[in-house]
Design a protein around this nucleic acid. Structure first.
Lengths: 352, 352
DNA sequence: TTGAAAGCGCTAACAG
DNA sequence: CTGTTAGCGCTTTCAA
C-alpha cells in the first residue's frame, strides 16, 4: 500500500504528495487542513495522492509554526514533599477511587472529537511539579487540567505565575486567579440531610472526608448546617479518608459512640459502602435499622448492597467542562477567568 | 523574573540566550543538551544566560530535527465495534479495576526519569483505533504501549503493519510479531491450587475470569491442570467478569451447586473479595469454613476482610519492563522482537 | 484559486 | 572547543 512506511522516520512529506499530485506544497497543505478556496477537482487529485503516498502530516513541523501541540496535560497533583512514601504508588492510590476514572472519561470525551490528547502526569513532589511546569513551558502541551488531592497544592499558583493556561477541578485554597469547575458541595450535603430527616431519622450521624480537602470540609459543613436549620444538635462525626476501609472503621466507631444512630451520611460512596458493610457486620439492617446516604453517585453506588441512595456529582460532565474552559483559555488568553459550579442532585435508591 | 513569559507563544529562543551569553546558538544548544566539549567557564555563562532569560527549549523545533516526540501512547484497547455501549464510560469501567492504576504507576515510574510522558488513549472502537494509529503515524508519539481487554483486539496487528513500535501487556491472540510482557498465569493458578490442597481442602472450586481473555483462560487451565495432577476430579467452575459483583454472584451460584465446598480459587482479587462477601452473607467463615485464594495481589487483597491469600502479579514491574522494551525498540528498530514472562508468587495472608 | 518563498526554533555536520 | 550553515516539514503571507 504505502510507498514509504513508518512516519516518524522519513515517511512521505508534503513535498512528495505535491509532486505526485502535480501541485504545490501550499495547495496540498490547504486540502489537508480543509481550507476553503481550493478547486474541487484539484482537491480530488490531492486526496488521491495523499492516499497513494500514505501521507501523514508531521506534527512537530506543524506545531512549530502553529505553536500548538494539540496536547494537554492532565495533572493529578498532591501537596507532598520529596518523601519516599509520597512517590510510591501515588498512581495506584489515585486510581483506586472511581473518581479519577470518571475524570479521565469526561476529559477524553471532550478532547477526542477535537483530536486533542491528554498526557497523564502526577505531581506529588516538588520535582514532579517542576517537571509538569517545564513540560508546558516547552510547548509540549498547550495547557493543564489540574486535579488536586489537597487544598494546599502549590501547582495552580505555579502555573498561573508562569503564565500557563490551566483549569482546576475544584476551587483552589488561596486567591489564585484561575478557572475551575466545582460542585455546590454544601447544597449536596443539605440534600442528603434533608432526605435522612424526611424519612424519619431521629439520630443521624456522618462520616466526613478529610477536612484538609475542600470537598470533605464543605460536605460536612453543609450537613451540619442542615441539622442546625432543622433545630437538631450537632451530629456525631467520624472523619475518614474517603476509602472503603476508612468508611467501615468510622462506622464502627460511630456505632460504639452512639448505638442508637439511625441514619448515616457518608461524604463519598466508597465510605458509604464501607459503612454498609460495617453495619451489616454489627447486625444492623440497611435501610431498615439504619439509613445510609452516600455522595458522588460513582460506580460503586449502584453496585453497593443495597444500592446506595446518594448525591450525584456529575464528574464526567464537570471534567468535560473543565476541558472546554481550558480550550477557551488557550484560544483566548485575554478573556476573563471564568468558573462553573455544578448543582448536585439526590439519587434515591434503596439504602435510604 | 523572566524577560518573556509563556513559552508556547514567543518565549526566548536559543538565539536570545546566545546573544545574552555572547556565544553562538550551537554552543547554547550543547550546554542545554549536556553535550561534552564545552569550556566550563562558558558553560557557566550560558547557564546564567538561560536562567536570566527564562529560556525553555521548544519541543516542536527539537522534535522536528531529532525525530523524537519523547511521548509514548498508553493505549487501553478493546475489541469493540462502534456501538454506543462500547463508548460509554469505557474509561470508567477500565479504571474500576485496580489493575490499570498499577500499569500507569509502573509506566510512569519508568518514563519519568527519562523525561518521557504517556498520552492516555482508549481504542475501543474502529474509529478510536484509527485515531491511535494516526497519532503515531504523525510522529506525535514514538511508540505505543498497548493493554488489551480482549484477546481478539485488532490494534496490535494494525500497529505492526504500519511499522510502528509497540509493546503489549499480555501475549496477543494471533501470531503477531510483537513484543510483550506477560505472567506465567498457569503456574500462578497451580500455586493457588497447591496451597488450597496443602491446607487440606477436599472440595475446591473456582471462580474463573472471562474465557475470551487470555489471562482468564490460562488461570482456569492451570487450576484444572493442578487438580488433575493431584488426582482430583474436575473442579466446579463459575465464570464471572473480573468484578466484585461478578465474584459475589458466582460464589452464590457455586454455594448452591456444591454446598460442601471448602476452598475457592478466584481468578482475580476483586472476584475473591466478592466471594468473601457472599460467603459471609451465607454464614460461612473465611478461612475456617472456606479458604479463599485470589490472584493479582492488587490493593484490594490487603484491604479485604480477611486479607487475601493471593498470587502476586508484579504489574508495576511488568509495566515498567513493557516501557523499557518499547524504548529499546524505538532506539533499535532492527533488533529482534523479544518478550518477557514474569513468574508469579504466592502471597499467604489470612483468607487461606 | 494557486504558487513561490520566507521562516518557526532547533540540531548536527563540518570547518576552523 | 566553538562558530557557521544547512536543513527538519510545515503554514502562511504575498503575488500572480
Amino acid at each position: 500500500m504505502n510507498q514509504e512506511s513508518s512516519a516518524s522516520s522519513g515517511g512521505p512529506t508534503l513535498e512528495d504528495v505535491a509532486r505526485a499530485a502535480g501541485v504545490s506544497r501550499a495547495t496540498v497543505s490547504r486540502v489537508v487542513n480543509g481550507v476553503r478556496n481550493v478547486d474541487p477537482a484539484i482537491q480530488q487529485t490531492v486526496r488521491q495522492a495523499v492516499a497513494a503516498t500514505g501521507y501523514a502530516p508531521n506534527r512537530a513541523a506543524r506545531s512549530l509554526v502553529t505553536r500548538r501541540a494539540e496536547i494537554i496535560a492532565l495533572v493529578v497533583s498532591g501537596a507532598g514533599d520529596d518523601s519516599e512514601t509520597e512517590q510510591n504508588a501515588f498512581a495506584s492510590r489515585v486510581f483506586a477511587d472511581p473518581f479519577f476514572g470518571r475524570v479521565v472519561s469526561g476529559v477524553i470525551a471532550y478532547l477526542r472529537p477535537r483530536s486533542m490528547h491528554p498526557v497523564l502526569m502526577f505531581a506529588e513532589t516538588p520535582d514532579a511539579r517542576a517537571q509538569a511546569v517545564g513540560f508546558l513551558r516547552q510547548g509540549s502541551a498547550d495547557g493543564a487540567l489540574i486535579v488536586s488531592t489537597h487544598a494546599e497544592d502549590p501547582l495552580p499558583a505555579m502555573m498561573t505565575e508562569a503564565g500557563l493556561p490551566a483549569v482546576l477541578f475544584a476551587r483552589p485554597a488561596g486567591a489564585v486567579p484561575i478557572s475551575y469547575v466545582d460542585l455546590a458541595h454544601q447544597d449536596g450535603a443539605r440534600l442528603a440531610a434533608g432526605h435522612l430527616l424526611a424519612r424519619g431519622c431521629r439520630r443521624p450521624v456522618t462520616i466526613a472526608g478529610p477536612q484538609d480537602v475542600a470537598s470533605g470540609h464543605d460536605r460536612l459543613a453543609g450537613f451540619r448546617d442542615a441539622m442546625a436549620r432543622h433545630g437538631l444538635p450537632y451530629p456525631d462525626v467520624a472523619e475518614a479518608d474517603f476509602t472503603f476501609r476508612g468508611g467501615a472503621r468510622a462506622m464502627a466507631l460511630l456505632l460504639a459512640r452512639c448505638p442508637d444512630l439511625d441514619g448515616v451520611f457518608a461524604a463519598n460512596d466508597l465510605m458509604a459502602q464501607g459503612a454498609c458493610q460495617a453495619l451489616r457486620d454489627h447486625g444492623r439492617r440497611v435501610p431498615d435499622d439504619v439509613a445510609v446516604v452516600g455522595f458522588d453517585d460513582s460506580s460503586v453506588a449502584a453496585a453497593c448492597d443495597p444500592p446506595l441512595t446518594t448525591v450525584r456529582q456529575p464528574v464526567e460532565a464537570m471534567a468535560a467542562e473543565m476541558a472546554r474552559l481550558l480550550q477557551e483559555r488557550i484560544e483566548h488568553p485575554d478573556r476573563a477567568v471564568t468558573s462553573v459550579i455544578f448543582t448536585p442532585e439526590l439519587v434515591v435508591r434503596e439504602s435510604a
